[in-house]
């Protein structure tokens, strides 16, 4: 399953123009579900991401680690264009997101929505739709975005609710659920899109400690089934157990990228060494 990309976060030697970065990657594009090239992003004057390169192969789990404010959530949110990067390119299964390849202008809302539907996201604060039942939260996008028939979408939704252990709550409304249950429904909602990659933005950070396990358990089982996932997390043991690749962000720079064994036992940089020491 592991397929560690060789080109680490060093800015590529090519010129910074977007089209060059695009051309560069054409050769192995098909292997990568997500390909981020020379991504930079500033909020006001503060640069939160600088020249990030990241590639995620099909079936891989990539975790993004780093201290608070290192830019890891922003990186994740750029992948589905919830944040608009200032520079760089992002491709999902070979197709560029956010910018129309022909006109070089921002994509139409419709085209962007279509690209986003190839991905799904699980948020820190769950973000279920409160006026819909558990089942309808999961069927909403398949029916109204993907145009699936209701019966088909419900059968699919139930199978995913089953997988996360929430099928018995199909008719409950979100406000009656615990945080862990809400997050498991949110995971089922993401799975129901049958996305090419699932993005997890600190999925356990808003949970009571005793509820963290049930959510991590579900994500672990998904990794065993070969789902492609990018996970921002603070759970080190989990990251070590579940990842095919770990990347570490520090002040907007991707300073380390390695398989979990190497990352946790022989970190290359002092910064990561200190980070890991503080975790225990």
């Amino acid at each position: 399953m592991s397929n560690i990309a060789s080109n680490v976060s060093m800015p590529s030697t090519e010129a910074s123009a977007d089209n060059k970065a695009t051309d560069h990657a054409v050769g192995n594009r098909s292997d990568h579900v997500v390909e981020v090239r020379r991504l930079s992003k500033s909020f006001d004057e503060v640069e939160v991401l600088r020249d990030i390169d990241l590639e995620v192969s099909s079936g891989d789990v990539v975790t993004i680690l780093g201290s608070s404010g290192s830019g890891k959530s922003t990186l994740l949110r750029c992948i589905n264009w919830l944040e608009k990067p200032d520079r760089g390119t992002i491709h999902i299964s070979g197709q560029r997101i956010g910018i129309d390849e022909n006109s070089r202008k921002p994509m139409s809302q419709k085209a962007l929505a279509k690209m986003r539907a190839k991905t799904a996201m699980v948020f820190q604060s769950f973000n279920l739709w409160p006026h819909l039942t558990v089942l309808n939260n999961v069927t909403e996008a398949p029916i109204h975005v993907q145009g699936k028939k209701r019966e088909e979408a419900e059968a699919l939704a139930l199978s995913f609710l089953e997988k996360v252990g929430m099928a018995h709550k199909r008719d409950a409304y979100p406000f009656t659920l615990s945080g862990g249950q809400k997050q498991r429904v949110a995971i089922a909602r993401a799975l129901a899109m049958q996305p090419e990659v699932i993005l997890f933005d600190e999925p356990t950070s808003a949970l009571d400690p005793e509820l963290v396990g049930e959510v991590l358990g579900v994500i672990k089982s998904l990794s065993a089934e070969g789902y492609t996932m990018v996970i921002v997390t603070h759970e080190m043991d989990f990251a070590r157990a579940v990842s095919d690749q770990v990347v570490f962000l520090e002040k907007g720079l991707l300073i380390e990228k390695a398989d979990p064994e190497t990352f946790f036992t022989q970190p290359k940089t002092d910064r990561v060494k200190r980070f890991l020491e503080k975790q225990h």
Partner: peptide, 29 residues
């Protein structure tokens, strides 16, 4: 909450569809 709006975008909703399916019903309630 802005979060559920982001969730809608992240799951491929266009602004108009999201407004009709997700925002308006909640506003009415």
């Amino acid at each position: 909450s802005n979060g559920q709006i982001e969730a809608a975008y992240a799951h491929g909703f266009t602004p108009s569809r999201m407004f009709i399916r997700l925002i308006l019903p909640q506003l009415m309630i």
